[in-house]
Design a protein around this nucleic acid. Structure first.
Lengths: 143, 143
DNA sequence: TGATTATGAATGAACG
DNA sequence: CGTTCATTCATAATCA
């Protein structure tokens, strides 16, 4: 799900080695989830079907995730909020109907726009039944 | 700031025929708006005052813009998001002193934003697996 | 052609 | 919860 190379420097390290200019200000302003964080959270959300965890569940999850890096309650809480929201946002790109263009010839039309991640995979997992496979169903779209 | 004179040879259709180099598998990774796209979007944003179009509006705009070149829903959506952000950044730089405002100026002292402080409460009113009351529950936790 | 800039894309965080 | 904002990351476009 993450095509970007995420560096596992969870100790509030400087994120991008972009400029390396004279700015030594490494103020970590917001949580940067580690790959382990993402992996576990995704497993909970998709495989286990945890959509709206209770306070106690969030606290428990947060406690577990602390082993993999610095994380707070609100990070876990917001993560689930955003996941739910983003899942709905993906639906909004439907009705992206193809309209013949003026100038060019027919370019490749990816009709149902993948809305997020040039990775041409979308992960279907929804509310997980108990007999779910160990990994979510991965469906590939190729233009 | 406005590199308007963009001539991407859009008559040929693919305005982003990037890799003539060794990389043959260059997958188109992001939208490159045509001049017509930019012109129409700017007219909507500035002349017509369309700042935060609804989902339906975005879809409609996207449909119209498709006539001028390949474009997707998310492109239009993100374009407006970024325009609003950039416009705000412009104004922020004009007021020289730049007090880093946490949220859009509307926060009285320590009104609602309890996240950043010691006692952290969140208003949790969503559905719980067991039983969910519509009323929000105020739960304290220690981070 | 490599460095810089402008901006598309993504997402954590928060508001109403 | 839906929406919006702020910040960050990635990269097309441009410049030196």
């Amino acid at each position: 799900m993450e095509p970007q190379t995420q560096q596992p420097t969870e100790d509030g390290g400087s994120n991008k080695a972009a400029g390396s200019s004279a700015n030594m200000l490494c103020r970590q302003s917001r949580w940067t989830p580690t790959t382990d964080h993402i992996r576990i959270l995704n497993e909970l959300f998709y495989n286990k079907g945890v959509r709206s965890p209770t306070i106690e569940q969030v606290q428990r999850i947060c406690l577990q995730l602390k082993w993999y890096g610095k994380i707070e309650f609100k990070n876990v809480y917001y993560w689930f909020v955003n996941q739910r929201s983003q899942e709905k946002q993906k639906k909004r790109s439907t009705s992206d109907v193809h309209v013949p263009m003026q100038r060019s010839g027919l370019v490749d039309d990816d009709k149902v726009t993948n809305w997020k991640h040039e990775d041409q995979y979308i992960n279907f997992g929804s509310s997980a039944p108990a007999s779910a496979s160990s990994a979510g169903v991965l469906i590939a779209f190729n233009g």
